[in-house]
Computed example of a mutant assay.
Amino acid sequence: MGNILAMDWHQVDLRGSTITLAEVKGGKPHMVQIAPALRAEMARTKPKDRKGPVFNTTNHKRRWSAAVKAAGLVDFKFHDLRHTFASWARQNGADLIDICEALRHHNVSVTQRYAHVKPTDTTTAFDRVAALLSSQSRKKKA
């Protein structure tokens, strides 16, 4: 959550579809691929406005609580998004090594506590979750 809320536009490379996080677990920089749907959404911000923080963190806790309530979730914490990502990626065939790298875990045994489904092919975890979210978004719009 800290990395997301503190993200600044200078960390975002829309042309290269990456976000570089300087401070992550282990103190090493981490580059994250931007899914096409997220890239398109971020590109809606005018270039002249791509300065400073990416997200407005004013009243973050209140807005988070409202979003959780609107989604019909109970006792859902921000960190649960990591578990959700790992589970969805695994359910859609990502292997544990890929998920381990995506979550910056030091070893796969930690990742195993997050995801429990057999993989089916070699598409990356980011690709799988992005595809899942895109298909759900299309279904809601239809």
Rank of each mutant, 00 (worst) to 15 (best):
T120C: 05
E23G: 02
A86S: 04
G72Q: 07
H60D: 05
I99V: 14
M1D: 07
Y114P: 00
L103K: 05
W64I: 13
S134L: 09
N107C: 12
V32P: 08
H30I: 01
A43R: 10
W9D: 00
S109V: 09
F85I: 04
L73S: 03
C100P: 00
L21N: 08
M42I: 05
A35V: 06
A130E: 05
K69D: 14
T124E: 07
F55K: 01
E101M: 09
V12M: 06
F55Q: 01
D98I: 09
N107D: 15
D127S: 10
K118S: 13
T124S: 15
K51P: 00
T122F: 08
H60F: 15
M42D: 03
A67C: 05
G26K: 03
D127Y: 09
W9V: 00
R63G: 02
L73W: 13
V74L: 08
A66K: 15
I34V: 15
A22F: 07
Q91K: 12
D80M: 05
E41Q: 11
I19P: 00
S109W: 02
E23T: 12
F55R: 00
P36K: 08
G26W: 03
E101H: 11
K118D: 14
H106D: 11
A131Y: 02
A40H: 13
R15Y: 07
V68H: 05
F126G: 09
I4F: 09
S134G: 09
W64D: 10
L81T: 15
K69T: 14
W88K: 12
H83V: 05
P36M: 11
W64S: 06
N56C: 13
Q11E: 15
T45D: 00
W9R: 00
M7T: 09
P119Q: 10
A71Q: 06
F78C: 08
F85M: 06
H60I: 11
K139E: 14
S17D: 09
V108D: 04
L132P: 03
V117R: 04
I4E: 01
H83G: 14
L81F: 06
T120A: 13
G52K: 08
P119K: 10
K69I: 05
D121C: 09
S109N: 10
H105C: 01
P47H: 05
A131S: 12
K118M: 04
A66F: 06
Q11F: 01
V108M: 08
A71V: 08
E23W: 04
S134A: 15
R50L: 04
F76G: 01
K46L: 11
Q112T: 11
T111E: 06
R50M: 03
T18D: 00
T123K: 14
T57V: 15
Q112H: 07
K25Y: 02
G16W: 09
T122E: 12
V54N: 01
A67N: 02
C100G: 02
A142C: 07
A86V: 07
T45Y: 02
D95G: 10
G72Y: 09
R128A: 03
A67M: 14
V32N: 05
H60G: 01
Y114V: 02
P119E: 07
S87M: 13
R113D: 06
T45Q: 06
K141N: 12
S135I: 11
D95W: 07
Q136G: 07
N92L: 10
P29A: 06
S135L: 13
L96N: 11
I34E: 02
S134T: 15
S134D: 14
T45G: 00
T20E: 11
C100E: 10
W88I: 13
Y114I: 01
A37F: 13
V110L: 10
N92S: 10
